[in-house]
Design a protein around this nucleic acid. Structure first.
Lengths: 201, 201
DNA sequence: GTCTATAACGTGATAGAC
DNA sequence: GTCTATCACGTTATAGAC
């Protein structure tokens, strides 16, 4: 595998993100990253002097990527239901790869994590909740969603359930996560992902 | 601190469980446990030769404790709503201590964990889901709960939401978890913990 | 049942050559 | 920007005395 100059930093982040979502923050080391990329331990330290730097950069990139993803989705999805289903699709890909949400990793390993990482993760939570809230508000307006409760509370409920679902799915098999998604669709009076083909509940 | 003979094994498990729920499985070491108990590293290895043994014993004790708790609750709680609220109370104590559910820890660090630990955690998931399902079934019968969907799916939804809520609560403050609980009460048409004083939604 | 001592290894991290 | 070489430390784990 030939590696172009300037890609190293990006590749390190990609490898780290993968390991992060599969094994947790304390579950991987610089050596794992270096081995996977075919570079030396010290090369990783060059780009990210401390593991805290690496972790912070990771969460920042998650935020950037989510920001871009959001812009695209809000341009292409016209209904609240579609926007929420798009978010479910994000997590569903994680589920297929047997990954968990990065927010879940921070949530569990919170106490031993660099403070800057936690602050950035908090900001990511706000970003995601903002997207979900907007989708819920739109869906309530356009009639594709129907639910009781205040928007921030319902958005938090959705995020909590998907996160927990991803983790339980690892123990129960991928069907576990799909079941949680169906439960959420039922609560939000939402058609299935195949555009009305399925009625949950 | 005087230590009676025979308590060491139990004390090790207690200390390990605390660290497990606060810092994750990869977030603590034998030294942390030994320091907290005022014994030597090797004393811990005497009781639990490998960290996998310790982890397995931990999850097994969680299962035992939950089994006892369940028997007590099912004897003292007469309605489905009360039984579910009792389960919420368990997690609420975790939230106050800024702990997460042990199942969440296994869910996140799954890939790097001893296989026996994962199997035992899977069994614990089944135990907890069984309790929730029974509570839901009773509540539907006695009229204290009302919801759509099949019992196993709803039970999974409840467990996923509480787990995710505990983790998000660490980033958002303890109020975050309470909000998730209120959302669940709303979905299940359930009165608040103070016996009808609060109406969620 | 607990200790001392120590092994064997992995970890995050640094210095300095190229 | 990446390398070799290495450090100091923490980790799990073992052997053998008490």
């Amino acid at each position: 595998m030939v590696r172009r100059r300037g890609d190293t930093r990006r590749d390190i982040l990609s490898a780290a993100e993968h390991l992060f979502q599969v094994k947790g923050f304390n579950g991987f080391s610089y050596q794992h990253i270096a081995q996977e990329l075919g570079v030396r331990n010290a090369a990783v330290h060059y780009h990210f002097p401390s593991k805290g730097d690496l972790g912070l950069a990771m969460i920042s990139r998650f935020r950037e990527d989510f920001g871009w993803w959001r812009v695209q989705q809000e341009a292409r999805s016209t209904t609240g239901s579609q926007r929420l289903e798009a978010f479910f699709g994000l997590d569903r890909r994680y589920s297929e790869q047997r990954k968990v949400c990065p927010l879940g990793v921070v949530g569990v390993e919170f106490a031993g994590m660099p403070p800057e990482m936690c602050r950035e993760a908090h900001a990511l939570v706000d970003d995601v909740l903002s997207y979900i809230e907007d989708a819920l508000a739109l869906g309530r307006e356009d009639g594709t969603l129907s639910f009781d409760g205040e928007l921030p509370a319902v958005a938090l409920h959705v995020l909590a359930a998907t996160q927990g679902g991803l983790q339980l799915g690892r123990l129960q098999g991928p069907r576990g996560f799909d079941t949680v998604l169906d439960g959420l669709r039922s609560v939000l009076r939402m058609a299935g992902p195949a555009d009305g083909a399925r009625v949950a509940g």
